[in-house]
Design a protein around this nucleic acid. Structure first.
Lengths: 203, 203
DNA sequence: TCCTCACTAGATAGATCGTTCTAGCGGACC
DNA sequence: GGTCCGCTAGAACGATCTATCTAGTGAGGA
């Protein structure tokens, strides 16, 4: 099955991709254990059998794929947002403000699927735990490089990058729980200020 | 059943409490949906029937109780840690260092059960979502009061408190995923520095 | 034309889920 | 001593879970 294109002339989204997209959304909203494969196949408008055709390793292989693809996707989104900002400090603010906007736009449903999976599988599934660790590490590395490129010493750049990802993920938790994006914007402001002060001190 | 006391002469832990403790631990490690009631009764060394005797509302009522009690418990633990520190800046550091120590001591299994539940139920269970929101709000209020008592203007104290809780929860996510407590100590250091600078500027 | 094979389609199995049910124990109170 | 009643104890139920299985479809190559 290759499903009708969303827009006339646009290429159809392959079944496998639809399964991954639907899984990422459901895992982020209901968690890994809280999402059934049947529900995934329904949301993806894919036959149940196709699920095990594309992912012979079952739910675990699907979960690993979701973590990897969502990790790459959100990493690129963040890079894009930062690229458009006029400077590194504004870029940090833009990431948190964009995250807040997304959370609000989806009625506090869609945040970071990686974190949702990570908390659940960290102690129960070594394969998936390692996949989430790889994603977080790659994000931190990318942010470190950006801060370093802006002139911050590498060791301090790494600390700021770690703090930024931690504040972002914690901000998602608070925002979804309280249905209020203040935590994201406030925490983002604090990280941005820290970066700003670091730049001022190394000038 | 009132089970033998852990230490001779010590009062036995009531069944209901054992159920709540076991649930908090399991929810924090495997998530809400990922934890079965049968497993809870086994870990609590309580008969299965007792579970529905003490919590007629089933898993949801149990979850709400766990959120409330764990919220109070960890709130008091943090207050105690901060009380023992020689100042507000050291207190912030002590909270993050203590969290890192706990996570490491439990082999990266026990972190914050509230966050684990919060991410899972935020979009699926309004009652439990509200319970997690109440806990986070009370933590933020308590931290705000402490910062304000140390001389920081209330509005800024609230921002620092929100950022601290966000960094703490995000630090838990990163620590458990990467099996490394660096994120907690680094993020804690950044928050402590922010508090320190705020105090210096308001002197 | 026929064969191949990637993929669709869904029934089915066995285990486990949350919940409900009845039965039994044992101390407190009349 | 007899009667409650809070609590223990676990069997049973229907639903749902992941995973496996067989059958069917349809485009592309020999």
């Amino acid at each position: 099955m290759t499903s009708a294109p969303v827009q006339p002339g646009a290429p159809p989204v392959p079944t496998r991709q639809r399964i991954v997209y639907a899984s990422a959304e459901l895992f982020g909203r209901r968690g890994y254990a809280g999402t059934g494969l049947k529900q995934i196949s329904e949301n993806a408008q894919a036959p149940f059998g196709s699920l095990y055709h594309h992912f012979p390793g079952g739910k675990e292989e699907l979960g690993e794929t979701v973590i990897e693809q969502a990790g790459d996707f959100f990493g690129l989104v963040v890079q894009g947002v930062m690229d458009e900002a006029p400077g590194i400090v504004a870029a940090v603010r833009a990431v948190f403000d964009g995250a807040a906007e997304t959370v609000r736009a989806t009625d506090y449903q869609d945040a970071c699927p990686i974190a949702a999976i990570a908390l659940e599988v960290a102690s129960t599934n070594e394969r998936l735990r390692a996949a989430t660790a790889t994603v977080f590490t790659s994000w931190i590395t990318a942010a470190t490089d950006r801060f370093a490129a802006a002139g911050i010493p590498h060791a301090r750049a790494a600390e700021l990058a770690i703090s930024m990802i931690a504040a972002l993920e914690g901000g998602f938790v608070l925002a979804r729980a309280t249905r209020d994006t203040t935590a994201l914007t406030v925490a983002g402001g604090l990280i941005a200020t820290a970066v700003e002060r670091e730049l001022a001190s190394t000038d």
